[in-house]
Amino acid sequence: MALTLTGLMLPAVFAGEAEAAQEAAADSEEYSHYVDVSVLSVWASPEAPRNMDAPALQNPVQPWQWTESMTAADKRGLLGNLDTQALYGMEVEVLEEEGNWAKIAVEEQQTPQHETGYPGWVPKEQITESPRFELLQHADTAQVTEPTAFLHEDRSLETKSLEISFNTRLPVVFETEDKLLVATPSDGNKWINAGDVTVYEDENAIPDPEASDLQATAEQFMNLPYLWAGTSGFGFDCSGFTHTIYKAHGITIPRDSKDQARSGTAVERSNLQKGDLVFFAYNGGAGEIHHVGMYLGDGRMIHSPNSDSTVEKVAISESEYAGSYHSARRYLN
Rank of each mutant, 00 (worst) to 15 (best):
G117L: 08
A315G: 04
T141Y: 00
R155N: 02
S232I: 08
N100P: 06
G287Q: 08
I245C: 05
V42S: 01
L181M: 12
G275H: 03
T71S: 12
G120D: 09
I302E: 05
R262G: 01
L40D: 01
D208Y: 11
H152V: 08
A15T: 06
T168M: 15
F280R: 02
R169F: 09
G195L: 03
F174M: 05
A18G: 13
M1H: 08
L296T: 13
P305K: 14
L170P: 12
K274W: 04
A281F: 01
D298M: 11
I192A: 07
A322Y: 07
P60N: 01
E108W: 14
M52Q: 15
N100M: 14
A25H: 07
V173T: 06
P60W: 00
R329S: 11
L272Y: 00
M70Y: 08
F221M: 03
H138T: 15
T242F: 02
P49W: 07
E146K: 09
Q220R: 12
P11L: 09
T198V: 15
N283Q: 05
E97C: 11
S239I: 10
K313V: 15
F174C: 08
T6Q: 13
K160M: 13
G195Q: 03
R300H: 06
P171Q: 00
H114S: 05
D196N: 11
V278L: 01
A102R: 01
T148W: 00
A194W: 15
T244S: 12
L332P: 06
H152D: 06
L135V: 14
A86K: 00
A218W: 14
L157M: 15
Q215M: 14
D178L: 04
N59L: 02
D256N: 11
A183N: 11
H114C: 09
A18R: 15
E268A: 08
A44K: 15
G7F: 10
L57R: 09
G89M: 14
D196Y: 09
P131H: 02
A281T: 15
V13G: 04
I127E: 00
M90D: 13
Q22C: 05
N100I: 04
A21H: 03
N100F: 07
H291G: 09
F236E: 11
A20F: 05
M301S: 07
F166K: 09
A12W: 06
N51I: 15
L78I: 06
L82W: 05
E129D: 03
A266G: 07
M294P: 00
A261D: 13
